[in-house]
């Protein structure tokens, strides 16, 4: 159990490194080595650290712990075939973590990041549409039931293709350097993470690495089904590389445009669900 968590952590960090490498190669740069993010996290953890004097100290530390805790819990939900609604809940909790990160420090840049994280809450909407559409097909939100359904009826990727697009968009929204990553845009330094340096940043990197692993793995489990670990990892890598291509060639959207794009996608899927319901009913 703990070994799987550590494994997910290192694979997640490696994925972050590959993500940066692919972006760099697409943009014609050499890029960092793919294990750069692992070194990065270790480096941060060795740095001398303190809590800013202006920060709300308890909150400042607690959000880092919560960030690691919720994504560990999400990984266990995936492993035990739990409810994807709970996974959805943890994803929303992650929003609160981002928000708390920015607000707790008292730094104006952190504050800007936090305000943008509130604005970009629309990124949860496509996930809601995903859950709705999956329930429409499987009549269950337990991951174990979804996997069982796919063994009988084939991958949901084909049946519920719009839901897959929505979830793809959700994963894209949460990646570094993505067109939707307005909360860590460079014009506001590092956004909500500006004041979390040293070991706090290392803790966050740990949480985010598990997050990337969980989101990609959840995509594979929900839309393709249970695979051997190596095949699943390969598939996750392919999805990640496709995401990296999008991140590499698309500029960052302006904050409210991200909201509009995500809301429109959700609206389109909602219409799809209603039309499907009318046709099938």
């Amino acid at each position: 159990m703990i070994e799987y968590l550590i494994f997910a952590l290192f694979i997640g960090l490696l994925f972050h490194g590959i993500h940066r490498k692919v972006i760099a190669r697409v943009q014609g740069r050499p890029g960092p080595p793919i294990w750069q993010e692992i070194l990065h996290t270790l480096k941060f953890s060795f740095k001398e650290t303190w809590i800013p004097k202006t920060a709300s100290q308890t909150l400042f530390v607690a959000v880092v712990l919560v960030a690691i805790g919720i994504w560990s819990a999400a990984l266990f939900i995936l492993l035990s075939g739990g409810s994807i609604l709970l996974l959805f809940g943890i994803y929303l909790l992650h929003k609160i973590v981002e928000h708390g990160l920015g607000l707790s420090s008292g730094s104006p840049y952190g504050k800007f990041g936090a305000i943008r994280s509130v604005i970009s809450a629309a990124s949860e909407l496509p996930l809601f549409a995903t859950v709705g559409l999956i329930y429409f097909f499987t009549h269950s939100l337990m991951l174990s039931d979804i996997i069982a359904y796919q063994q009988v009826h084939g991958p949901l990727l084909i049946a519920a293709f719009p839901a897959a697009i929505a979830m793809y968009l959700v994963i894209l929204s949460k990646l570094h350097y993505s067109p939707f990553a307005i909360i860590e845009a460079k014009e506001i330094v590092s956004g909500n993470m500006t004041e979390h340096f040293g070991i706090w940043r290392a803790g966050l990197e740990v949480g985010y690495a598990i997050k990337t692993y969980v989101l990609l793995y959840a995509f594979v489990l929900i839309f393709i089904g249970q695979l051997p670990l190596l095949a699943a990892l390969l598939l996750m890598l392919l999805i990640l590389v496709s995401l990296s291509f999008i991140c590499a060639v698309s500029p960052m959207l302006s904050p409210y445009d991200t909201v509009t794009v995500q809301s429109l996608v959700t609206g389109a899927i909602a219409v799809y669900i209603i039309v499907l319901g009318v046709i099938l009913a």
């Binding site: 159990m1 703990i2 968590l5 941060f44 953890s45 060795f46 740095k47 001398e48 650290t49 530390v61 880092v64 712990l65 919560v66 960030a67 690691i68 805790g69 560990s72 819990a73 266990f76 035990s80 040293g198 070991i199 290392a202 803790g203 740990v206 949480g207």
Partner: peptide, 27 residues
Amino acid sequence: AVWLAEILIVLAFPVFVIALALWWSAS
């Protein structure tokens, strides 16, 4: 019970990560 172990790890793992880093970064 597996669920109990999971809850224990979820509670203890973040503390472990931060405390470990605090330990080796402390001057």
